[in-house]
Design a protein around this nucleic acid. Sequence first.
DNA 1: TGCCGTGTTTGATCCACGTCAACCCTGCAC
DNA 2: GTGCAGGGTTGACGTGGATCAAACACGGCA
Lengths: 247, 247
Amino acid sequence: MSTDAATARLAFEVVKTACSNCNLRELCLPIGLPQDDLRRLDELVSTRRRLKRGDHLYRAGQAFESIYAVRSGFFKTDVLIEDGRDQVTGFQMTGELLGLDGISSEIHTCNAIALEDSEVCAIPFSHLESLSRQIHTLQHHFHKVMSREIVRDHGVMMLLGTMRAEERLAAFLLNLSQRFKARGYSPAEFNLRMSRDEIGSYLGLKLETVSRAFSRFQEDGLLAVHQRKVRILNTAGLRKLMTHQRG
Amino acid sequence: MSTDAATARLAFEVVKTACSNCNLRELCLPIGLPQDDLRRLDELVSTRRRLKRGDHLYRAGQAFESIYAVRSGFFKTDVLIEDGRDQVTGFQMTGELLGLDGISSEIHTCNAIALEDSEVCAIPFSHLESLSRQIHTLQHHFHKVMSREIVRDHGVMMLLGTMRAEERLAAFLLNLSQRFKARGYSPAEFNLRMSRDEIGSYLGLKLETVSRAFSRFQEDGLLAVHQRKVRILNTAGLRKLMTHQRG
DNA sequence: TGCCGTGTTTGATCCACGTCAACCCTGCAC
DNA sequence: GTGCAGGGTTGACGTGGATCAAACACGGCA
């Protein structure tokens, strides 16, 4: 790529990145802000950062300064302990925030890793706090985002604590489907960005069990799956599988 | 009790309840606030509420208005789904906050139930938001509290996703121990406020498995347990059990 | 083109925990 | 005291998912 072309491309993206014209503004932090306040948000995003597949956005133990909004791409967060165990705590897609775990101790407590080439907006946290002292709507929305994360975690606890393998995978796929839909993609057909092992870690299962559950769903006509390509054929069936199956 | 005595008692407690002289101020929301700001917090706590063992502080589906600080007593929160499954999502003791899950949708998403006679301070959320727009330290501390809840949830996910029964129970007991210690109680000897079934629900185990793990710990000399009375004899042993045991 | 590495699928076996059931302990009502 | 109810413990047995192992699919590369 020529230098000129690169410059032009950069300029283009700087424009796009301002919250006020970002096409994610209905998903991301600015949601529900009136135009005036929205423009004040533009100063909030200090830097963007591009990551290649496999890159760490941050690591457990690093000092916390910013939270990050996913502009494009796909992430996972995970927690490791010495003895080698690790738990994937979440998968984040466009418009979702990363780094909220770091606020409590001012040190990141998990790793955030790009599962595909990605781009994030860095939002210095002190800046976000000061702006949200001025903009009531922003403050409230930020609180909602944190609370939503807590509610999501409760859902995962329910999943890990009470569901069996196939129910967990069904719940996981329906959740992904619904999030793709909210972003204007097909809720029925999508590519998984994560490996069977990563799905297993998130769901508290071994990769073989995940693979077997996929095969079972395919046998039962609930979905068509080939490697990471998934097509949901029977949403209602998946939903039914997820909720009862018990008793 | 005579009416006069009741009035006197009430007055006494109103005094005690003001955040600025509350003996929980080092554990609870006011942590780290200078005296001046602390006094402004006194107006924050609108009402106290007493609950008897078994009472609901709030239920899933109710409108969210306030968060609650536990003044005395012990709570559990749980999530139920139609088919009868339920998951205990946490146990809360003095100085801890309840209700953060409700912020996201303005509806409580779980039930909060007193496990013993308890008292809470109700903090109207809109009031907390407006005060934290004025008091930087309060705002920051509140963010830390929410973040800490997220980190705690990640810990539970790790526990549910990767640990085996005895490791889970060891982790649970060590966590309780440490929280009792932080409140000035013995970290080695305490009464469980919850049933085996509730512990099991929290840990993703059946009550029989919890009971067997207790018995095993006793056989191994790690603790003495009789019904809900627990005495930890070998903290290091429990900690070792919790971390490796794998490979 | 064939080879290699990484991720996925599938099968055979094992075991930790769930399930079912009996019994026990403690507190409470009478 | 005696009876009863609700939790807790313990045992025998079954099973869902882990583990171990082999083969397969696919992309990258020489």
